[in-house]
Design a protein around this nucleic acid. Structure first.
Lengths: 341, 341
DNA sequence: CTGAAAGCGCTTACAG
DNA sequence: CTGAAAGCGCTTACAG
């Protein structure tokens, strides 16, 4: 494995000159020298040692992507399409920027902070972090961090998210417009601030605007997992004065409900309408295809990397930034007027 | 940020002693000293610098996971459930082993090898690598590597895969057992060795055993993507003497076919039976649920990490190892006897 | 435009 | 059981 030293010797220059050539500070080197150095680099197949560079430059070129070790449904981490699509696009962008991606599931804030510090990562992107964890992370490690889909209130943190509340509102309005008056809500619990709470709030707002209300017995809590949702369908149907439509906070829930309803002899959308959220592939896999709120996940990933790189460029003078991407309703086949009673 | 030096000074010992304590060579240190050092480490919140450690120890503690930058369907990398499930389990295992995971999409063998060398990664796991790339990788970087689902013939490479051929065979047999005589095959092209070719071979074998043959007009090529498969359904139906059943080399293809068949007025399984492969979630999302060949993806990930760690432990004397996990047929709802003609 | 030298924070024989 | 010293392969003021 040739080193900088080897290249320098072979090219008849100092290590520092080689370093300058390799790091783009080419204004400090004559064209002839640059050519000579590059020739040697190629011939020897020289590859800089990233650890050495990181150690002396105090800059690792590593970006960490941290995701929940288990999602709400108790499923294996990263298993859900949203997170994997997101990771994939982050990886692409990070690589494009000449940086490296370290993937981390977050078991505890401590161990995550430990890793970040140990590798002296330049910055980090966090998926699915709770508000208290955000604060702990910031105090534990001083580097650019951007959070995704975080609805905490602190103005000091950078966040990239979507119009969750508007999404909920659009879902509610669409169902109302179709003629529904008894509309249910199915999603995970939302004791803490987060996307589910926002979607719920927007949904309730739409009902309120129309002079309707969300009855407690029409709220069914269900973790984001297909099987959970299949089971939840029965609970929806068992409610007194059962709803004629439901808003599910995630497509995977919508898909599970769909199966559950149909199994229970309640056809969709004839007897029951469904609106999902996210516009994941699953929404088109099933029949009827699920009407849902579209969000641009790769776009969110690009925005997250962009914000991170901006912060990196201005660090430590960087200011926090919040970006919110739009949502839009995608009409498909799971919404119809309520059955003529 | 406290350093080893700070800890040593504070504890009144040498750097080397602190290092020994931290790296488990505790037999070389007295219990009293260990206690003192640990107390200081905790009090100062000392976190070792991974780059420095990597540089001097010539061991990075980094494992790379490399995945195709675009899969066969031209979809964004990592988007498919198989890869993301795999990555997630690899991450868990790697973390558990006290190592770090660097995620890489492979645009070119050169850039990948560059990254591996630059970070001096301890080892790497490769998803979806072609045979020629495998060879190039091995010559470009000398470290433990394990390939996944590689059906190349070289005995020198470590591989973890599944019984693809048996899977194809079981699929064929199941369809034959149901009474089908004209059975089609839908999957990506398989000019090179790989899982598709194996699954196809096993499938053909089953037909042959039963005195049947796979007619060329019953082979429909289709990339692994839902929409591609929806479109492919028409081609299956358009074949002269159309088949009464098809084997799809992936569940996502099976799901797309299902939709395509139903749309074309050909109900599944009444008029057309389908068997998929992988047993991904999508197989249970759709109706009818898809009968498929189960493979244990997290198990494959664990095996891959295990093989890698074993090699790491014995490096450079390590011997290559090939592991093959089983497959099993999962009965669901997409297979029925052929329609009475 | 170019270089000598110090230093980043660790580990590792080696010696005692 | 413990330590002094060299060295891993880079970058970075500083000087010329």
């Amino acid at each position: 494995m040739p080193t900088l030293q080897d290249v320098a010797r072979e090219a008849g220059v100092s290590k520092m000159t080689v370093s300058n050539v390799l790091n783009g500070r080419r204004d400090r080197v004559s064209p002839a020298t640059i050519a000579r150095v590059m020739e040697v680099v190629t011939r020897l197949g020289y590859v800089p040692n990233a650890s050495a560079r990181s150690l002396s430059a105090r800059r690792s070129n590593i970006v960490a992507l941290a995701f929940p070790s288990r999602d709400a449904g108790g499923v294996t981490p990263m298993t859900n399409p949203h997170d994997s699509l997101f990771l994939s696009e982050v990886e692409a962008q990070v690589t494009q920027a000449g940086l490296y991606l370290m993937a981390h599931s977050v078991n505890s804030v401590e161990s995550t902070a430990h890793s970040l510090r140990s590798w002296n990562v330049d910055g980090a992107i966090f998926l699915g972090t709770r508000a208290d964890e955000v604060a702990a992370l910031h105090t534990a490690y001083d580097a650019p961090m951007v959070f995704v889909d975080n609805h905490g209130t602190s103005p000091h943190i950078s966040n990239v998210g979507i119009e969750d509340r508007l999404g909920g509102q659009l879902a509610g309005r669409r169902l109302i417009e179709a003629g529904h008056r008894r509309i249910g809500f199915v999603g995970p619990r939302f004791d803490e601030p987060g996307v589910v709470r926002e979607r719920h709030a927007g949904f309730v707002q739409a009902l309120t605007e129309a002079g309707l209300s969300l009855r407690p017995e029409h709220v069914v809590h269900c973790d984001a997992g297909f099987d959970h949702a299949v089971a939840a369908a029965r609970r929806v149907l068992a409610a007194p004065q059962r709803p004629t439509a439901v808003f599910a906070t995630a497509d995977i829930i919508a898909a599970g409900l769909l199966k559950g309803f149909v199994r229970a002899g309640c056809p969709v959308p004839d007897q029951m309408s469904i609106i999902g959220f996210d516009d994941l592939e699953v929404a088109r896999h099933v029949s009827p295809e699920i009407t849902t709120l579209h969000q641009d996940i790769p776009g969110k990933a690009r925005a997250a990397v962009e914000v991170l790189l901006t912060q990196l460029a201005h660090w430590p003078a960087a200011r926090s930034e919040r970006r919110v991407l739009g949502v839009s309703l995608v009409e498909r086949e799971s919404v119809a007027p309520p059955p003529a009673s």
